[in-house]
Design a binder for these strands. Structure first.
Lengths: 191, 191
DNA sequence: GTCATGAATTAACCTCGGTTAATTATTTTA
DNA sequence: TAAAATAATTAACCGAGGTTAATTCATGAC
């Protein structure tokens, strides 16, 4: 019972008509390293499927501090669920950490394409289930793990990401300052 | 374009056949205050729809500390998404904070009931979207807000919950100790 | 009313992480 | 290769939150 992933656009079970609609609304874009894909506060109902490169999603607080929500690499996708569902501005920024190539699709176009397809709806269900589950994991980590433990876990779980990002960004993902991360790295091994 | 909520079991668009199946598998249970509904580590694929009472979902760490994931009151529902999707043990406990009356439904029964219904799938999509969105909010709060700010926000957002729970449990939800919460409450107002 | 139980507060002490700022790599560019 | 820019480390100081334990407050039970 493997469900087709929403991430594999080509494999989506769409009929000729719906398929061509999607094809038409699909846009290939590219961004340079450090370029912003969309800003916090800006309405953005696009879905971005990463062909190559690395993206960070981050909040900027009122005091101007940056906190990182997530890193997404090739094969992954991102978009502002909040903006898509409410029509209001995104709660976070999306920034390219490496030169980036993406397939861009409008959220409503995709939803409409799946409007009458049971199979597509199941793919949506599956996608959002997984999303909810991954958010639960992160909630668990914030509640139950120390910064030290979160660091260790992230390194073990995403070594390929760790090697591609600045230590400073990793710190902002863990919810601590770059200085604190530097310190705890060199701390006596530690639980 | 209001979608029927998964929470309103009676209103679900189910045909006579699927409906009766659901009716049959539906179980009315009740628990006493302080009773455990299911334990961390225990496989539990049930969905619990709360008719009355209040529940807390909490993690117990290896050191025996409790951290609270969420509070759910009448009209809400809960279940272990992780257990349902993977078949493994739940990552958290569910405990009644007040005498509790619930409608219990098996996850797979509900999924099967919606298997061939486009409408039901849309209800699922909607439900998991909202779930993912609410988890995102919590992630934002842990990343961007201080314990003080989280406390203030929770009081404003869920005054009816605040009045029904022990301060100690609220602290464990905020990710701090009861002592720390007591302190910050009495701190110079403070941003 | 008294006693007992549990909840909340307070105090003293300690650790971790934040802050500012200086220093030392490490890249990049010229 | 030197100079400039960016990243990472280190130090000194501070405050928030953890820990233990004692104290005060509430609530029931008898």
């Amino acid at each position: 019972m493997t469900t087709i992933s929403l991430l594999d656009l080509q494999a989506l079970p769409l009929t000729g008509e719906a398929k061509s609609k999607i094809q038409k609304s699909l846009n290939k874009l590219s961004f340079n390293k450090d370029q912003t894909i969309f800003h916090q506060g800006e309405v953005c109902t696009s879905l971005y499927f990463i062909r190559s490169g690395l993206v960070k999603l981050s909040y900027i607080t009122t005091e101007g501090k940056e906190l990182i929500k997530s890193f997404i690499a090739e094969g992954g996708m991102f978009g502002s669920l909040y903006s898509q569902l409410t029509g209001e501005g995104s709660t976070f920024n999306a920034t390219a950490l490496e030169d980036l190539a993406v397939d861009v699709l409008d959220y409503t176009a995709l939803i409409q394409a799946g409007e009458n397809s049971l199979e597509m709806q199941k793919i949506f269900v599956n996608f959002f289930q997984q999303l909810a589950l991954s958010k639960e994991m992160r909630e668990y980590e914030f509640l139950c793990l120390s910064a030290q433990q979160r660091y260790k876990k992230f390194c073990e779980q995403y070594p390929q990401i760790v090697s591609r990002i600045r230590q400073a960004d990793l710190a902002l993902y863990l919810g601590i300052t770059p200085i604190a991360l530097s310190r705890l790295k060199h701390r006596s091994s530690g639980e």
